[in-house]
Amino acid sequence: MSADPHRLRLLLLQNAPLLLFLVLLGTFALLSERFLTPGNFVNIMAQAAHIAIIAIGMTFVLLVAGIDLSVGANMYASCIVVALYMKGMHPLAGFAVAGGLGLLFGAVNAFLVVVLRVPAFIATLATLFIGRAWALYLSGVKMVPFGKELLLLGRSSWLGVPVAIWIFLLVFAIAWTVLNQTTFGRQVYAVGADPEAAKKAGIAVPRVLFAVYCICGLCAGIGGLVSATQVAAAASTFGFQKEFPVIAAAVLGGTSLFGGRGGVVGTVFGAVLIQTVENGLVMTNADPYVYPLIISAIIFIAVLVDSQRTGMLERLERRKIRPEPG
């Protein structure tokens, strides 16, 4: 069966983002000698950290074939509270508040999607606008500076590695363990593959669905504050349109929009890939107006690959009515 041409094409499709990544690395390395240096790599990682953290949360939601469009608004709504009311407090308290508010935001999404059965796309589109409007109201549409404790944290590093990267690594390790080493994590995959069969297998499907939206919200809150440590103030555009790179990172990393396939390792890879492209474009002095074009072209390829792969898997798994010889 390994010689099957379908399987070969599938293998190529599955690794398309990796191939793309290598091609890009090579291109940028040729165009700029500053690109392929350790310092630049740490830079890329630190810049990618907040997207990676939020995309990790998004991965949970995508794995159950859901979606959360409100992560950018969640970032803003959770962090504006920290900026407005938590000045002079320990950064840890800031993370607890931002994470808690993010979780609450996620729980609202979960309530709409799981209990009220509003389609996830519509529900989170609504909370996107509500969340942003609420944050704008709180801030008076003004730029609110973050406390200097947060900025100090953002500038500090441990073992030569910026704190943002450490936080990202911690979130990643926890998320990976939950997805791969707990009953809940494996049930996330089961629900995403076939909710009907999951119900028959005795899995509490609504509970799993509720939990993934909460996790996504929590990650949005934490990721937002990581971003806050890197920028001086929460402008009214803080977190604006972040859902796009976040979902793109997960999909680029091989997480299917149709549920059941993917994981956080790929997501991290996707987030780094997107940041690499942006960084490479800066390094090669590309026209800034070209960035969105190139980024969206890459994302388009990722989504195209995903749908191709899904169609191919379906064809491979079609039920036969005549047993084949051999």
Binding site: Y189, A190, D194, A197, A198, G260
Partner: peptide, 15 residues
């Protein structure tokens, strides 16, 4: 009623 994206052992204990 098996989950194709999981392994045999995971299917056995998914509950």
């Amino acid at each position: 009623n098996l989950f194709r994206n999981l392994t045999i052992e995971e299917n056995l204990f998914i509950g």
